[in-house]
Design a binder for these strands. Structure first.
Lengths: 190, 190
DNA sequence: TGTACATCAGTGAACGCGCGTTCACTGATGTAC
DNA sequence: TGTACATCAGTGAACGCGCGTTCACTGATGTAC
């Protein structure tokens, strides 16, 4: 029935990206292959090379999507709730609900480092992570502390390295754990 | 000149482990191959299978070594300095000076989960990470907060994801960053 | 001290496989006039 | 409205490669008597 599929797919680039994210979520970025991605998308195995140049190009495109999505989530959390803590919760939520993006994003050796879109996407995400206080120069060590904590928590959780007694709700755990962070007063203000 | 090498190596298991750690430190656990390891050790490519059963067995042996080494470092830091902070510094130091161990240790999907030695090595390391206060039941959330912070910091640092303005001394950065952690009073006592 | 035998440690050829990339190609669509 | 041509999007065969694992083997060492 699907054999009336036209020669031109129409949206193949996006379809390939979705398939790749699926594969990575299941088996990790290391296990990604161009062949598997095209197989899932139901196209010839050379199609991915046409769209992304090579494997690194595909992974770079995924990283760009990931940074943009994370940026959007963090910015929304900051805007809506103006709370330092809730930005951290949003970070952990993103990491756990988009493991494929998270996996690829923080392994720069998989990326085309020179890629302009990637650099810009990373830059604006970092701005939200550091510049929590709307332009006011934030204490960098405090920002790194907060980022490290949520990043480490998300990573340890995702890999199943945390004790079971913490329960099953990562957002609740994030709030409990992040309570041990001493943040600059200005950041918790409403 | 090395061709008077005897048929029996004498210490091949340890040599293979060292070679594997070398490869992983250079290219990551994903890039490890049994062939490359034996090539570096200068033996036939089937030798590694003889010693470890299969690739997963080799990676599991590396994880065991890693957990034991980390446990030793953390226990020493705790014993010598009795400071919560310095255990964290030791953790980061270990992660950055043994990237191969660190990489393999926290990717459980690479391990033989049922391996008895691995379970025991993980268990005793976790005990030091949580039970900082010599047997006194510690606040779990506080322990996870500290662990997450140093784990995240080490990970982000190792992958080059932290801003350059932090400088080049990871131990100093750890102390500055960990200062934002609110730890239970008992733990910082001398 | 000698000898037979078992076990251990490592070899090297062979297997089948999936991979990334290239290349000449073809089918479909867009554009100029 | 028609036609010629350029460009775009995707195909499928072919390449060479490194991999993990198996297997029958051999060389060296240990053990029993």
């Amino acid at each position: 029935m699907a054999d009336d599929r036209p020669y031109h797919h129409g949206d193949l680039r996006a379809t390939l990206l979705r398939a790749a994210v699926e594969v990575i979520a299941e088996s990790g970025a290391a296990a990604l292959s161009m062949r598997e991605v095209t197989r899932r998308a139901g196209v010839s195995h050379a199609a991915a090379t046409y769209h992304f140049g090579d494997k690194r190009g595909l992974l770079t495109a995924i990283a760009v999507d990931g940074y943009r999505a994370l940026h959007a989530e963090l910015a929304a959390a900051e805007r809506e709730r103006r709370s330092f803590l809730e930005v951290g919760v949003a970070y952990v939520r993103f990491a756990l609900s988009h493991p494929a993006y998270f996996d690829v994003m923080f392994q720069p050796h998989l990326h085309e480092v020179a890629d302009v879109e990637l650099r810009e996407a990373k830059r604006s995400t970092a701005a939200v992570l550091y510049g929590i206080d709307d332009g006011a120069p934030t204490n960098v060590a405090a920002g790194v502390a907060a980022w490290s904590l949520v990043h480490g928590l998300a990573t340890l959780w995702a890999n199943g390295n945390l004790p079971a007694q913490l329960g099953e709700d990562p957002e609740a755990v994030t709030r409990a754990v992040a309570a041990h962070l001493r943040v600059p007063r200005a950041s918790t203000r409403t």
